[in-house]
Structure formats: C-alpha cells, structure tokens
C-alpha cells in the first residue's frame, strides 16, 4: 500500500540560502503515528509547515518532494496547496487560543470549514459540527458550538481544535505540541482522543516530550539542527539510542521522571 505521506530529500532554507532543514525523508502509512522529536530549532515544526505549504515569509522549500496520497504537492498551485489545510490535512497546534480566530465562535469555524470543503448547506454543516464536538467528548456540545474560544478551558479548546481538524476526515493529521500546555490528566485525554479520531488517517506528531512521543507513536524520528539523526520504533530507540544527542534527550527526560515508571 502506498503511504499517505511521503517526504523525500526535503530541504528548507532562508531566502538568502541559509539552510534550516536538510535532506529529511520519511513516510507515514494509513493508521500510523509518526513522531518527530527534537529541541526547538531542530527543524521539526518547519518540516510540518513545509508539508502544508504554510512556511513563514522569508523561508522556503529548497529541495525535495512531498507526496500526499501519491500526489506531488509541488504540482499544485499555491492556492491549491493552501486549500489542503482543513480538507486533506488537519492541523492541531499547541495553543488553540492563538490559532483560533478569537472573534469567531467555535461553531462558525466548524460550519465554514464544512461548507467550504464539502459543498453542503449551512444547517447540514451545523449538524455535522455539533456531531464533531460530540465525537471529541465535549460535555455540552451545543454550548461549545456557540462559545468563543476564550470561553472554553484549555482542554476544551484543544478538543474543539481536534474536532475542527478532523471534521473533514483528512488523510493526514499534523499535531504540533498538542498537549504541551495541558496538565497530565487532560494531556492523556487529548492523546487518547487523537488516537481514536485518527481512524484510517495518518498522524504526524511533533513533540519535545519523549513520554508523549512514546505513548502514541509507531515510529520516531529524532531531529537535530535541521537533520534527521536517528529513527526507529520508540522503545527500541530509547533503549538503544546510537546518537549522543538522542541519548542526551533520553537521559534528560528520564532524569526528569526520577525513579517512577507507570505501567
């Protein structure tokens, strides 16, 4: 079976030619969770932005190939590529408060996305939106539908963001530090939800937290200074890290956890 997402020889650089990401290659299959771990500045978020065609101004893809469901995304027009987000690629970020539009209700964002990408009518979109909020286990989906982002708690906002990201059943879900701002119990709920909502989609999970990565990912890539330095199955990688940087990340994470291991 061909992978949902295939990235080969990806290079990203500043307009002046300074390389930021070099020679990144990976593939994610349907139903699979691939994690990218590394510290800030390692290029993990830029890699995700390059896939969605949403690189910040002044930064561009300089080399390589991104294929979504077999389709070379370089062949799309810039507008076509931007339209991927919301339809074929769903995105979940660390802080929904800064990625949601603060003056729009959760419901109006859901309706807009459903209407734009599915060519359905508004009342039908409303039903879909409320259903989506039910699916992410928001206690009062109709109240959440009419709420503004700031009226929800951090955990509720992240649920709403997952509802929006997965509304149109995207082939690929990208989650960039989705639980970094959340406490442990809510983090667990959100990770379980991401896994449940994934279905036959592929999930690219970007995180600096090895506990989060190991809990969800089938495979991990470790990035440092714009390059993939190591990859593998999480437990194998953590136990048999070859690269000193991976060992340093692991040892720092284990030191933070002290002696306690929860089964």
């Amino acid at each position: 079976m061909s992978p949902v997402l295939e990235v080969a020889g990806l290079g990203i650089g500043l307009d002046d030619g300074t390389p930021l990401v070099q020679d990144v290659a990976f593939a994610v299959a349907a139903g699979e969770v691939l994690g990218i771990v590394g510290e800030s500045g390692s290029g993990k978020s830029l890699t995700a932005f390059a896939i969605t065609g949403l690189l910040p101004r002044g930064i561009q893809q300089t080399a390589g190939l991104v294929r979504l469901q077999g389709e070379d995304l370089a062949m799309l027009t810039p507008a076509g590529r931007r339209a991927l987000a919301g339809r074929r690629i769903g995105m979940v970020f660390q802080d929904p408060l800064s990625s949601f539009n603060p003056v729009r209700t959760v419901g109006s964002m859901l309706v807009e996305s459903a209407v734009r990408h599915r060519s359905i009518r508004a009342h039908e979109a409303r039903r879909l939106g409320i259903e989506a909020l039910q699916c992410v286990r928001l206690a009062e989906p109709e109240r959440a539908f009419d709420a503004y982002p700031h009226e929800l708690s951090g955990g509720q906002r992240q649920r709403a963001m997952i509802a929006l990201a997965s509304l149109n059943e995207p082939a690929l879900l990208i989650a960039d530090e989705p639980t970094t701002a959340l406490d442990a119990t809510v983090q667990l709920q959100i990770l379980a939800l991401l896994k449940r909502r994934l279905g036959q989609g592929a999930l690219l999970l970007i995180t600096h937290d090895l506990g989060v990565a190991a809990s969800l990912c089938d495979r991990l890539l470790v990035m440092q200074r714009g390059r993939v330095i190591e990859h593998g199955e999480p437990q194998f990688l953590l136990h048999h890290a070859q690269h000193p940087y991976t060992r340093r990340l692991r040892d720092a994470a284990l030191a933070l956890h002290g002696a306690a291991v929860n089964a």
């Binding site: 667990l188 506990g211 989060v212 969800l216 284990l254 956890h257 306690a260 291991v261 929860n262």
Partner: peptide, 17 residues
C-alpha cells in the same frame, strides 16, 4: 491518584486507550 496515573513515562510503552 488520577494525576499520578496520568503521567507518561518515556519507557512505559504505548498508551492503553
């Protein structure tokens, strides 16, 4: 107790949904 159970240890393996 819930909070302690929710901590994700890197070596604890995959999340049990």
């Amino acid at each position: 107790k819930l909070l302690a159970r929710a901590v994700l240890h890197p070596l604890a393996g995959k999340l049990d949904l």
